[in-house]
């Protein structure tokens, strides 16, 4: 398993975040994990990494769509303006319970290749890592 610098989990649902953490640790990923409860918080955090600690910029982002303050799509739109997003190109996985066709299509328009319908499972995450990190 490739070593991640750090992982960012963006979701307002506590139970969902807990599950994601357990699954990530269960498959042997030990990188530091940060949680943001909405897109705005996540953007601020990433900006901070850009400004002060690019070495630890997250290389895996798990992103929910429906969130208060700033939703997943707005986050994707705004994050384009972050210069270090381009340099680091983190792996982004959308993790949501939305099965709206429109949401899936919209995700594709952001070039997001992984769209996971909750619940996240060990198998799904392992498969993604195997494909994208090998």
């Amino acid at each position: 398993m490739k070593k991640f610098n750090s992982i960012l989990l963006i979701d307002d649902d506590k139970a969902s975040n807990y599950l994601a953490k357990v699954i990530i640790s269960d498959i042997g990923v030990t990188a530091p994990l940060h949680v943001s409860t909405n897109g705005k918080e996540a953007l601020d955090l990433l900006q901070d990494y850009c400004d002060r600690n690019q070495a630890d910029f997250p290389d895996l982002i798990l992103l929910d769509i429906n969130m208060p303050v700033m939703d997943g799509f707005e986050f994707l739109e705004k994050s384009k303006e972050l210069s270090c997003m381009h340099t680091h190109q983190p792996l982004i996985i959308i993790l949501t319970s939305s099965q709206y066709h429109s949401d899936i299509e919209r995700a594709k328009s952001f070039n997001i290749h992984y769209y996971i319908s909750k619940p996240l499972t060990e198998e799904q995450l392992r498969e993604i890592f195997e494909v994208s990190l090998s």
Binding site: A15, S16, S97, P119
Partner: peptide, 17 residues
């Protein structure tokens, strides 16, 4: 039904853990 899916998925995962 869509909004019920999320919490239910969590419940399923939490139970298995």
């Amino acid at each position: 039904s869509h909004d019920l899916k999320g919490p239910m998925a969590n419940l399923e995962g939490l139970i298995s853990i």
